[in-house]
Design a protein around this nucleic acid. Structure first.
Length: 889
RNA sequence: GGGGAUUUAGCUCAGCUGGCUAGAGCGUACGAUUCACAUUCGUAAGGUCAUAGGUUCGAGCCCUAUAAUCCCCACCA
């Protein structure tokens, strides 16, 4: 016996994955080389019209471990890939690894600090080299975890986001943008993390509500009086360039245009009218510090105010009176408040809650800082993207995310792509340093970022030290992963589908669409499937601090990869944040074990039949394959029925996969395999053995489940005596032939058996119930299947009723069936019988009420009305018979 | 302030084009042990589909309003 009595995933999974990988089955059937590799104008590929399925793995952080979200991503993407591969598509699942600029940098810098070092001890190139080594060391780990999850991705084509072709492509795009005038260098206020010494894009900022204080400070007006301003940041007052009031504000109308004296200094600044000042808030007058506040920056632009920086990048006070120089902003605040109070200028303070921008990695409060950075003018990109989205060129799952995305694109502001960290793709821009070359532009584009300084036409240039925002390069994902190029496009671009987390719709999906359109003129993918967050069992976000984090690798080790995949797909739908608990993985594990034992039983029947008859070797030689129409005949009604149910299952799985309803695909497979195949068909096959059909149906179910549970299905496939090759490369099953009338009869038989079981169970002394016989009168269905009924319903005998009805009548319409129980038991059953009669009566009333409504009869479809009418007749007959029995008792 | 969701069994969720008695997994109760599987088998209980109106022969589904919960963006001197 090759099959152990339970399935042990760990005995099979590593070997199976290794076998797949070495057989090269993850590579797409149609070569991914360019359409015309030898450039002779002829399509080189064999199967031009082959159906293509391409999908890119959102590249996990190369230095990290996979978390539960990666587990979900891979379960979703790999089941799609395997499904389309089985369907005969040339399926290309392209893996990736992300250099994860800032994320990785933070980890690396933390390690440096632990060892007592600082980034400032090294130059940028040294740092880059050190991080490179660090990442290479870590990377294998992440890739092993992806393998453990069963991802059937083409490892040879893995794209690391610092690979040469990626950098090349990013530079090409950047150059194009530079030439198109979409890139500009601007001094703007950026979100700056004083700890990490880098700026962020708006999207990377995390806003948190915090308690703070709102101080009211009196600014003396030069020709008498004072104006009270409110601020949460008194230390920035040295950078104030104006005091603003609302133009509609009658309280301050006369003061507009006058000058005030900035407290603690000798400087005078004007009172200006600007809508930014909210009449309802504080005193209605607000100090304007263009160099340290985003709104004030804009006010300053409208009124041509100077920008005076008073906090330096390294967090020291600058351009302030001697006394405050070099203080940290916090120290300075204390001092300023003390001095204002002494001067009698501190009028009021109150506690407020306001939202404060934090670094999403270290939690440090971000300092709005004036910096020269590279910006991308996104208006054109966003507008083009919106046009294509509105033309429905990309289908979204869930649908509503398209509207959300358009709404975001409509309000998108220019994108800061400069990062002041060494780990990343160097920005290919060089600044002129030869002062005498006045005619030359200040900045030039050049790809030679391996050099710090270059010379061009005798002019010296030095490289900008900054690196690109990671999203700038990762927005090229679909292009670089498929090796798309201008002169040799690939049929794998656009991707069939982009699957990723709903949380990076803006950061990544939006940018891929903009970039894809800008570079290729085509949307980068036809469909987008967005998954939500995986929450803990109570619907809470998983976090280290809460201690509710589930590690996918631990679950895989404990229950197997398939169990994890089945478990995490269950109960999940597009875009929703949904709970996940270990017990769903347990359910997945149980299904795997069930399938294993199903195979074990089928194999034992096959083995037995091979040993006992001469004709069997012929059966054993029959090829197992798609042309199964000729391989079997159906000899009893359960066989027609299971064919019908399996066909219906295949149909639903196909439909669910095309509409990304993974959970429902798994559900229908589970109920077909377990509730139908095992509980009814296999039970009936313990009596009637149809070996060719057993083989075909088992193969069909194995293939259909393979996308979701790749390991156990392959393990079984390898263990069965008659199957050949690998299941991963089989063809999706074709329809099974069956007789629909016979199949429906078996459905009736199931109803009969279930009702008998239910009646037996409700009898007093349930464990004794199996002592009774079943009597039938004029019931060919039961008569013809007497043996099956006896075994499945667990009655002692199934006999024709001779003479007058006796025993307990089974409450089924159109069947005259009795349990041969003693009078006493029938009497005990009286109460239950009353209940049954009442229940049927209620159903009948409902149906009658419907028929009494003339509008229903007139307007509802005729078919529906007929069904109702038939149901009434059935129920009436049933009630009559039950009443009759009641009378007898 | 702008945008997007959610509310169905004890829990987590399905329910697609409005149509028969609203489903699943887990949990619960009762029963079952040689003969593929106790990671099992059988049976059952459990629902005012958030609330109130409306449309319709018919509403969990469509429309209007209300309530609660959540997410994103912007703002918060």
């Amino acid at each position: 016996m090759k099959f152990a009595s339970s399935y042990e995933p760990s005995q099979f999974e590593p070997d199976i994955y290794a076998a797949w990988e070495s057989a090269g089955v993850f590579r797409p059937a149609v070569p991914t080389v360019p359409v015309d590799a030898d450039a002779n104008g002829v399509d080189d590929r064999d199967e031009k019209n082959a159906r293509i399925f391409s999908i890119v793995m959102p590249p996990p952080n190369a230095n990290g471990n996979l978390h539960i979200g990666h587990g979900l991503t891979i379960a979703l993407e790999d089941s799609l890939t395997r499904f389309y591969r089985l369907k005969g598509y040339s399926a290309w699942y392209i893996p990736g690894a992300d250099h994860a600029g800032f994320e990785t940098w933070v980890v690396y810098e933390r390690n440096l600090e632990k060892d007592g070092h600082s980034r400032f001890e090294f130059d940028r190139d040294t740092l880059y080299a050190r991080v490179w080594d660090f990442v290479q060391m870590q990377r294998g780990n992440m890739e092993l975890q992806i393998r453990a999850l069963g991802a059937s991705c083409a490892w040879d084509d893995l794209t690391f986001t610092l690979d040469e072709n990626v950098v090349d492509r990013v530079y090409t795009t950047f150059e194009k943008m530079w030439n198109d005038g979409m890139v500009y260098r601007g001094e703007k206020l950026v979100n700056f993390c004083p700890k990490h010494q880098t700026a962020f894009a708006d999207i990377e900022v995390e806003h948190k509500d915090e308690k703070g204080t709102l101080w009211s400070i009196a600014y003396p007006v030069v020709d008498g009086g004072e104006i009270i301003v409110s601020t949460t940041r008194p230390e920035t007052l040295f950078g104030d360039m104006a005091v603003a009031v609302n133009p509609e504000d009658t309280r301050y109308k006369e003061m507009v245009g006058k000058m005030v004296k900035l407290p603690l200094t000798e400087r005078e600044i004007p009172i200006i009218a600007d809508e930014h000042a909210d009449m309802e808030y504080g005193t209605g007058a607000v100090k304007i510090t263009p160099a340290h506040d985003f709104d004030d920056f804009e006010v300053g632009e409208r009124h041509n105010l100077e920008r005076l920086q008073v906090i330096s990048e390294d967090g020291k006070m600058v351009n302030v009176p001697e006394k405050y120089l070099d203080m940290t902003p916090a120290e300075c605040r204390k001092e300023v408040l003390k001095d204002l109070e002494a001067a009698g200028a501190l009028v009021d303070e109150k506690k407020i809650v306001h939202s404060v921008a934090h670094c999403y990695k270290c939690g440090t409060v971000l300092e709005p800082t004036l910096k020269e950075q590279w910006f991308i003018d996104v208006k054109r990109l966003a507008r083009t993207a919106i046009e294509h989205l509105e033309r429905d060129e990309i289908k979204f799952y869930p649908e509503n995310k398209k509207r959300v995305l358009i709404n975001y694109l409509e309000n998108l502001k220019d994108w800061n792509i400069s990062r002041q960290i060494p780990w990343g793709i160097a920005i290919p821009m060089f600044r002129k340093v030869s002062l005498e070359a006045t005619d030359e532009p200040d900045w030039i584009f050049d790809r030679r970022t391996n050099l710090k300084t270059i010379e061009k036409s005798g002019v010296k240039y030095v490289r900008d030290e900054d690196t690109f925002d990671t999203w700038f390069s990762s927005s090229h994902g679909p292009i670089v992963c498929t090796d798309w190029s201008e002169d040799n496009p690939t049929p794998y671009y656009p991707l069939n589908v982009m699957e990723t987390g709903a949380d990076i719709l803006f950061a990544w999906v939006a940018r891929m669409i903009m970039m894809g359109l800008y570079v290729t003129g085509e949307v980068p993918f036809r469909e987008v499937y967005l998954h939500g967050l995986v929450l803990d069992a109570h619907g809470q976000k998983m976090s280290k601090s809460k201690g509710n984090v589930l590690n996918p690798m631990e679950l895989v080790a404990k229950y197997g990869s398939d169990a994890f995949r089945l478990g995490i797909l269950r109960g999940r739908s597009a875009g929703m944040n949904q709970a996940f608990a270990e017990n769903s993985v347990v359910a997945g594990r149980n299904l795997c074990n069930k399938l294993w034992n199903i195979a074990r039983l089928v194999q034992s029947i096959v083995d037995d039949s091979a040993g006992s008859t001469d004709a069997e070797p012929m059966v054993a030689e029959m090829p197992s394959s798609a042309e199964n129409g000729q391989l079997y005949t159906t000899d009893n009604m359960g066989e027609d029925w299971i064919c019908r149910e399996i066909n219906s299952c295949l149909k639903q799985v196909g439909k669910n996969m095309r509409t990304y309803r993974f959970s429902e695909a798994v559900e229908v497979l589970q109920s077909t395999i377990w509730d139908k195949y095992a509980d009814w068909f296999l039970e009936s096959q313990k009596i009637y053995k149809n070996v060719p059909l057993l083989k075909v149906t088992l193969e069909t179910l194995l293939i259909a489940l393979h996308p979701f549970a790749p390991f156990v299905t392959e393990a079984i496939w390898q263990n069965l005596s008659w199957t050949e090759g690998m299941i991963i490369t089989q063809q999706w099953p074709t329809w099974l032939n069956f007789d629909p009338m016979t199949a429906e009869q078996f459905e009736n038989l199931r109803t009969v058996i279930s009702e008998i079981r239910g009646t037996l169970q409700s009898l007093p002394g349930g464990s004794n119930a199996k002592k009774y016989a079943l009597l039938y009168d004029n019931d060919s269905l039961v008569a013809d299947n007497a043996m099956l009924v006896r075994i499945l319903a667990r009655v002692t005998e199934v006999q024709a009723l001779n003479g007058a009805p006796r025993g307990l009548r089974i409450a089924l319409p159109n069947h005259e069936l009795y349990l041969d129980v003693p009078e006493k038991v029938v009497a005990d059953y009286k109460e239950a019988l009353t209940e049954k009669i009442l229940a049927v009566g209620r159903e009948l009333d409902g149906l009658n009420a419907r028929m009494m409504n003339p509008n229903y009869v007139d307007r509802a479809p005729a078919e529906l009305v007929k069904e109702t009418r038939d149901a009434i007749l059935e129920k009436e007959a049933l009630i009559a018979r039950l009443r009759q029995q009641f009378e007898v008792i």
